[in-house]
Simulated scan of single mutants.
Amino acid sequence: MTALDLRDRAAPPSAAPASSRPGPAALLLRAAAALSRGLFIAVPVMLVSTFITFMLGGLTEQDPASVVLGDSATPADVQRMREAFGLDRPLLLRYVTWLWNALHGDLGASWFTKIPVAQSIAERLPVSLSVAAGALLIAVVLGGVFGTLAAVRQGGLLDRTVTVVTSVLATVPGFVAAVALITVFALIVPVLPAGGWAPPSAGLGTWASFLLLPSLALSLDAAADVARQLRTGLAGTLHENYIVGARMRGLPGRRVVLVHALRNGAGPAVAVLGMHVPRLIGGAVITETVFALPGIGELTKSAALSGDVPVVQGALLVTIAVVLVSSAIVNVLLVKLRPAARREL
Rank of each mutant, 00 (worst) to 15 (best):
V259I: 04
K301G: 03
L149K: 00
R80T: 01
A224M: 08
T206A: 10
G245M: 04
L107W: 09
G38C: 08
I286M: 14
T287I: 15
A31P: 14
T237K: 03
A65Y: 06
G174S: 09
P90K: 01
S306N: 15
A202I: 00
S36H: 09
Q79A: 15
P13C: 07
A180R: 01
L87D: 12
D159R: 08
V311I: 14
A292K: 00
W111S: 09
T53C: 12
A284E: 11
A222L: 11
A266Q: 06
L212M: 08
A150F: 08
R228D: 09
T97Y: 00
A25D: 10
A227L: 06
R80D: 13
K114T: 12
S209V: 00
V140I: 15
V68M: 14
L220V: 15
V332G: 10
A84C: 00
G147I: 04
Q62I: 15
V96M: 04
W111H: 13
P214R: 01
A304D: 10
P190L: 00
A26E: 14
L187P: 01
V191R: 03
V323W: 13
A26I: 05
L192A: 07
Q79Y: 13
A271G: 03
A224T: 10
G283W: 01
G203S: 03
N241S: 14
T163A: 15
A151W: 11
G307K: 10
L107M: 11
P75E: 07
W111I: 13
S14T: 04
R249M: 15
A84G: 03
V272A: 05
G267N: 07
E123H: 08
D221H: 03
G38V: 08
L158I: 11
T319R: 01
A198Y: 09
T166G: 06
F210L: 00
L27E: 13
A151G: 11
G267F: 13
G105Q: 14
A10F: 06
P64C: 12
P12F: 02
P294H: 06
T113Y: 05
F185A: 08
A178S: 12
G23T: 12
P75K: 08
L99A: 15
L305K: 08
S49H: 09
Y95L: 02
F112H: 05
S306E: 15
G70E: 13
L280N: 10
G155I: 06
T183N: 07
T287Y: 00
V332P: 08
F185C: 06
G86C: 04
A65E: 05
M275E: 05
